[in-house]
Design a protein around this nucleic acid. Structure first.
Lengths: 326, 326
DNA sequence: TCGTCATATGAAAGCGCTTCCTATGGACAC
DNA sequence: GTGTCCATAGGAAGCGCTTTCATATGACGA
């Protein structure tokens, strides 16, 4: 079932079939009708490989995640897919987590797309630069700007400062930050903002490295709370850590929101259903994905050649876990 | 940067380059070394379109979701992507939700993959059959078997019966089921199992249609609870409805787990963090995705021609929202 | 020493499409 | 009636690769 079959059936040449189907050049009305009828009868669908070879483009773009578990990435993907497909592009996903050689996997993916969205914590910058230098349009999301690539991020600094100040207003004194600033620029930003916010009120928080999952949150929090002069506030780098920390706190009989304040980051679904509901920072995840798709498309279609760097605002969402509110 | 450049650089023909790179035919050791060196120096990566045109396959498969929001699908995708890429296949995702013409989108996707996983509530059976009849390997997930396609599902009947009996043991009398059995075979199965389980104890539940989201859960539950002889148990078709229902119940001062039992389905992350924690049914979502990838691969590689239909067990997870336990 | 055969390699066809270039025929002006 | 031009459509090249088929080279046995 190829374009030749259609041409034969309609009694025309393949060039005419192509023109009739894509409207790339004028075709007599009668001929077009004949061709389209043949297409319909035969149920012809152009081979994608053929088209993409001839056009030298893929009509697809890729998105590279660290992993797909957790609500954060799913939302980004959702926004991305929605917009990308509205723009007529298929979406290839790649999760680097647990992969022996992420860089190769991404290079491989690069060979089948017209552009790539790369999220933080997936592949090193030099791979992004290499691909970008090769002429592949790239948008990085939630990671620092890279030469030659566009970037989209959620700015957490303001919200982090606000969070620090809010906690100070609650009267906390010993604040522990759970997360690894040196491993992620995003976390570094949150840590910095929180420290600044608290600093205004003379509070100097400590930082304890922690992985981005619930179990780590529980473990690290348990360690912090076991000491004599335990913290009265745990600021966690994401919601999953915070939810884990709540478990640890309740384990030793602390009432979260009274005896101890615990905050997260991301506003995942579980955050508002937890009791006490989790004070956190809402990121516009869907928008992040949608914007990435849009920015990438501009670059692919050549509508824009100057780099674009977007920063989206985040919102502090105050709930009960940071202290009871009237 | 094509195979011709490499051939020229290595002083060989393009056929030799191809053979050296893919090992499809013997190449003298010295020649191979020369070719690989040229590949390395030039940073050559074979064009995917060219390869896939020549080989007449894509080394990619697709997965079709209703939408990607919510934790359920993200987990399925995770398992799928992991396994598919281990099997050397790229993954194309498509979300049909909110799309004017899902069938066309899926047909389109079908043209760029070697096989397709189709989840429930995306496209009608006849489209699946049509694609399958065209020779495209298809695996349906969480939807009834379709002629010519393999299928993977989670069997909810046993767990639903167990849930019904468990609720009866709690002494509930008026049970309302929130969900639309006629719209989804999965929901129909849950409804049937719950009714059977309760029926053994002489309880006849009612059913109220409800969409699969939190807001609908709140709205429908609010309606049900507003009447005089209100239900003392709400069995929800998924966790999001249940979490919404909890909100509605608390809104009017009911203590969930005491005054009223509420249960969900899926065991999403928020389920265990809700207070009271949600009694629900755990589905092996990741395994579902992984198994789908495997079954699809068998069919694509031709390792199996007989249809395969798998049903995975689900587990009742009893927590506090269905009644306080000792 | 010569013929035979295995082995390594290149030329070329073909995968299905797009598009440039060229040819044809009819409409129109003169 | 003839020449010109435009609209339409076909032929063919080319996209980058795999693989078949044919050929060259050298090893080996007779």
């Amino acid at each position: 079932m190829t374009i030749y079959d259609v041409a034969q059936r309609a009694g025309v040449g393949i060039a005419t079939v192509s023109r009739a189907m894509r409207g790339s050049a004028p075709v007599a009305e009668a001929t077009r009708a004949r061709v389209l009828a043949a297409v319909e009868e035969l149920g012809f669908r152009p081979s994608h490989a053929g088209t993409s070879l001839a056009e030298r483009k893929h009509a697809a773009n890729g998105i590279v995640f660290p992993d797909l578990s957790g609500p954060y990435y799913a939302e980004v993907l959702l926004g991305y897919e929605e917009t990308a497909s509205r723009l007529g592009r298929s979406v290839l996903v790649l999760a680097t987590h647990g992969r022996p050689d992420p860089a190769t996997a991404v290079r491989d993916l690069a060979g089948r797309v017209d552009g790539l969205v790369v999220l933080g914590r997936t592949i090193p910058d030099h791979v992004v630069e290499e691909l970008s230098a090769f002429g592949l349009p790239i948008v990085v999301v939630a990671r620092p700007e890279v030469d030659g690539a566009d970037s989209i991020r959620a700015d957490g600094l303001d919200a982090a400062r606000a969070l620090g100040e809010h906690l100070a207003a609650h009267g906390v004194r010993r604040v522990a930050f759970l997360g690894s600033p040196e491993e992620s620029p995003d976390v570094a930003e949150r840590w910095r903002g929180v420290r600044e916010g608290l600093g205004k009120h003379g509070i100097e928080p400590t930082v304890t490295p922690c992985h981005f999952d619930e179990a780590s949150g529980t473990r690290v929090a348990a360690g912090l709370l076991a000491v004599r002069e335990r913290p009265d506030a745990l600021v966690c780098a994401n919601d999953e850590i915070a939810l884990g920390a709540i478990v640890a706190a309740e384990e030793i009989g602390l009432r979260v929101g009274r005896d101890i304040a615990i905050t997260g980051w991301d506003d995942v679904m579980a955050a508002r259903h937890a009791r006490p509901a989790l004070t956190t920072v809402r990121q516009p995840m869907r928008t992040l994905g949608a914007l990435a798709a849009e920015v990438l498309d501009q670059r692919i279609t050549g509508n824009r050649t100057t780099p674009r760097h977007e920063s989206l605002a985040t919102d502090l969402v105050v709930r009960d876990s940071c202290g009871l509110h009237p």
